[in-house]
Design a protein around this nucleic acid. Structure first.
Lengths: 391, 391
DNA sequence: CGCGCCGTCG
DNA sequence: CGACGGCGCG
């Protein structure tokens, strides 16, 4: 059975607000680690992944993995019945067809209880490999919201370009063209040379090895090492085409959503190859990039040899500072990237700003953008394939 | 070329917000004095005139007069992309077909640049004569907003009546009738006898003669003295009929919007006939009013002889006090006026309240109302013809 | 200044 | 019918 007690209903409400427009039904995959939700958006262009850490709950118990098929519209309605600061307990029996929600007012003078019907949802959970990116932009989430909403007034698409200059968002439209350039806050040169990978708050301050090995629950749940070799067809079309999974090499029943294509060796995605990993990474990343019509030099390698450990600590320091000052803008770049995305989706993603004062944009050329919001109890991550004709 | 640097985008944003519903396309007439915009509203019932003083810009340069044809919807969109406190630079090359806008965040970590397409717009700029009115009400702009919004819930029209009692706004509706009476703040008797003419802030404290001669750029730009004799047909209908310009006597190519009908002599609109002007005014105004079903005595003349100079200084003092205390209500009256206007338009005009804490209502019987908001860098003025059946 | 409600647009 | 934006209120 599942029993998860959340200190505040607000987190859940905001989460649902953030994704309910994108996804109508989804499985809440509950296990002893916490709760995960992963789904393609309704038009199968974007992917959203939510994680709620077991430790983030006031109380958490889940004897064995159970998927709870939830209609998000229904859950949103039920959650509207909770005040933001209500203590909220989610309960589901094994094989249950209802999710029980109990809202307890802070002062306990009110207890509300709801039973929401569950549904069976085809679990097309994709394994999302932990991928290295060429660039990460960390900025105030409100700023990101602002930029994409502004530009969405002008046109449909935005080109996001990370260079030494900073990060530029540029759109073209009927009435006007617009371009927003954000520079690293302190004017320091753009950080580079460190590995740029998604990580969660709870991983701050732990060793990088640990980060790499431990951060993607999806990996442990679904993917074997062999499965890691599966390859996503990045169909970079303008609209409604799925980010489909290539069947070749698939060896277990689970599909994998794999934004990066550094897959010939694939071992760097595992946490068990430790320090050698960096070098492997560079080799593989470099090879791959060449193959992909981006044959520029590998600044990553150079940077790595010159400043690997220092830039690692710098990265961590930067992240801490962001926590202290949500206004900071940090740009890490190992490679110039320039990608074009649908503003409609980015505007949608940016709703999650209420969950977290900052957002990370992780990019590599020709690879889906990762938009990540990390909050205390977990994260919400969006993946969006670039449009074709980008550059 | 034009290059105009504004300390805060907010001013421009508020201006556009204020007029974009009224007007869709308009020429920004730029010259070395500043920027002017003048347009009839879409249904040609009201006229809006905006002036931005060159001196109000952080930097201003305009080599030669250039009209920039702007779609206000587009400009509004582009301005939405600016934060209120962004330093904003407008640039346009000679004969350019785009307006370049650069927004620079106060801390310079963000620079956004937009290019907005320009269009050719028939420049039907009207010369707006500097007219003397029978009454001026200066009141907190929020108060005006409130009153017209309140009354608009009851009916379509408001009768605005200025008398010794104060200024009364009265509406009649199906469900209820309403009347709001505002008295001069300090309870002092209503000022009268001075010339009541629109003036801008920068003119405070200069001689009245200078005010009269120098305050309407539209005059210098467009109207000759002969043109002043042109006469507006005041078609005082409820809705869609233009405030058209009468062709008779028109001697240059420029049309003129002429809210006052003291036009047989017409010279009082020039600054060069000084003190005698008042008497001419009274004669002409009186004649005209008689012709138009307002045959009341001419209190203006009496007031002038008794308190002309003292009330002039009082007027200036009153305006200064308004600057100090935006809550003050000042009523100046040379003649009882009673006019009826469409509330829909007044509600629309009152949006400009965000630009300036006070508003001036200038009225003469049977003449378009002038609603004027003066802010630091310029002004926005609305003219609205009275409805028939007023009084 | 932030939140909630109403109206408009997709 | 739902979402987004604007306006009004506390």
């Amino acid at each position: 059975m599942l029993e998860a007690k959340l200190a505040e209903a607000g987190t859940l409400k905001k989460l649902l607000d953030a994704i309910k427009e994108l996804v109508t039904d989804a499985n809440f995959e509950c296990n002893e680690e916490g709760i995960n939700l992963q789904a393609m958006d309704n038009s199968h262009v974007a992917l959203v992944a939510v994680h709620l850490e077991a430790a983030g709950f006031k109380r958490y118990r889940c004897d064995r993995p159970m998927p709870l098929g939830v209609n998000l519209t229904s859950l949103t309605k039920v959650l509207k019945c909770a005040k933001d600061d209500d203590i909220t307990t989610l309960k589901a029996a094994d094989e249950a067809d209802v999710l029980n929600l109990v809202y307890e007012a802070k002062n306990s003078d009110r207890i509300a209880e709801y039973d929401m019907k569950l549904m069976d949802i085809d679990s097309d959970t994709l394994g999302i490999p932990d991928t290295e990116y060429d660039a990460r932009v960390t900025m105030p989430s409100a700023e990101f919201t602002r930029i994409v909403r502004d530009l969405s007034q002008l046109g449909e698409s935005v080109r996001i370009e990370v260079s030494k200059e900073g990060v530029r968002f540029a759109s073209e439209g009927e009435a006007a063209n617009g371009s927003v350039l954000m520079k690293q806050t302190d004017g320091a040169s753009v950080a580079g040379g460190n590995k740029i990978m998604a990580k969660t708050k709870r991983e701050d301050g732990v060793d990088e090895e640990e980060q790499e090995g431990g951060e993607e629950e999806e990996q442990e749940e679904g993917g074997s090492k062999k499965a890691k070799k599966e390859k996503v067809k990045k169909e970079k079309t303008d609209g409604d085409v799925d980010m489909v999974v290539d069947d070749e090499e698939k060896e277990d029943g689970e599909e994998e959503f794999k934004p990066n294509s550094d897959d010939e060796e694939g071992e760097e995605e595992q946490g068990d190859d430790d320090e050698n990993e960096d070098e492997d990474d560079d080799e593989e990343g470099g090879k791959k990039r060449k193959k992909k019509a981006n044959g520029s030099a590998k600044p990553k390698k150079k940077a790595k040899t010159s400043s690997s450990s220092s830039s690692k600590s710098k990265l961590k320091k930067g992240k801490k500072e962001d926590d202290e000052d949500a206004q900071a803008i940090t740009i890490e770049m190992n490679q110039h990237v320039s990608l074009t995305f649908s503003l409609k989706y980015l505007v949608n993603f940016s709703k999650s700003a209420s969950l977290c004062p900052k957002v990370q944009l992780m990019m590599s050329n020709d690879v889906p953008l990762l938009v990540a919001y990390d909050f205390g109890q977990g994260y919400i991550r969006y993946y969006l394939a670039p449009k074709i004709g980008d550059d």
